[in-house]
Amino acid sequence: MYLVESWIINFDAQMVASILLHVISVLLLFFILSKLLFNPVREVLKKRKDGIAKEYDFIKDEKQKATELEKEYKDKLANINKEADKILEEARKKAQLKEREIIKNADEEAARLMARANKEIEREKDKVKDEIKDEMIEVAKILASKFVASSIDKKVSDKLLEETLDSIGEETWLN
Score class of each variant (00 low, 15 high):
D134H: 09
E99T: 11
D158I: 06
L160A: 08
V139D: 00
N81F: 02
T67W: 03
K98T: 08
K119M: 15
S151E: 13
S145F: 06
S6M: 08
R112H: 03
E70G: 03
D85G: 12
E124W: 07
V139S: 04
G169P: 06
R123Y: 01
A91I: 06
S167V: 05
K82R: 11
K129I: 12
A106R: 10
K63N: 05
R48S: 15
E90L: 12
A13H: 03
K63C: 01
L28R: 05
E170C: 02
E162H: 08
L45P: 02
K141M: 05
R123L: 05
A144H: 04
L27C: 15
E55T: 00
I32H: 00
I121W: 12
L88P: 01
K82H: 09
L165V: 10
V23M: 13
A117P: 00
I142A: 13
R92M: 07
Y2F: 10
E68I: 02
D153Q: 06
H22R: 03
W173C: 03
D153W: 00
V139L: 12
D57E: 14
L45A: 15
L165N: 05
K76D: 03
T172N: 05
S167P: 02
I102N: 12
A84L: 13
N79Y: 07
E62R: 13
K82D: 08
S25D: 10
L29S: 13
K63R: 05
K119I: 12
K60Y: 02
I8L: 10
A17M: 09
A149N: 11
N79L: 14
L37M: 11
K49R: 15
L21R: 06
A17I: 07
W173D: 05
K74R: 15
R48K: 14
K54P: 00
S34M: 06
S18D: 11
A149P: 02
I102R: 15
V41K: 07
I168G: 01
E99P: 03
H22Y: 05
I52Q: 07
E43G: 04
L29D: 07
K127E: 14
K63L: 03
I132H: 11
I59G: 01
N105F: 01
N175A: 09
F11S: 10
L97R: 13
L113Y: 07
N105P: 00
V16G: 03
A111W: 05
K133C: 08
E124C: 07
K60N: 12
A78N: 13
I32E: 02
E83P: 00
I80H: 01
F58R: 00
D134V: 08
L29I: 15
K127L: 14
R112G: 00
L27T: 14
N105M: 08
E62T: 15
D50I: 04
I142S: 14
I24S: 11
K63Y: 02
K47M: 09
N81H: 04
V156Q: 15
Q96A: 09
H22K: 04
E5T: 09
K146W: 01
L143W: 02
K35D: 06
T67D: 11
I32T: 06
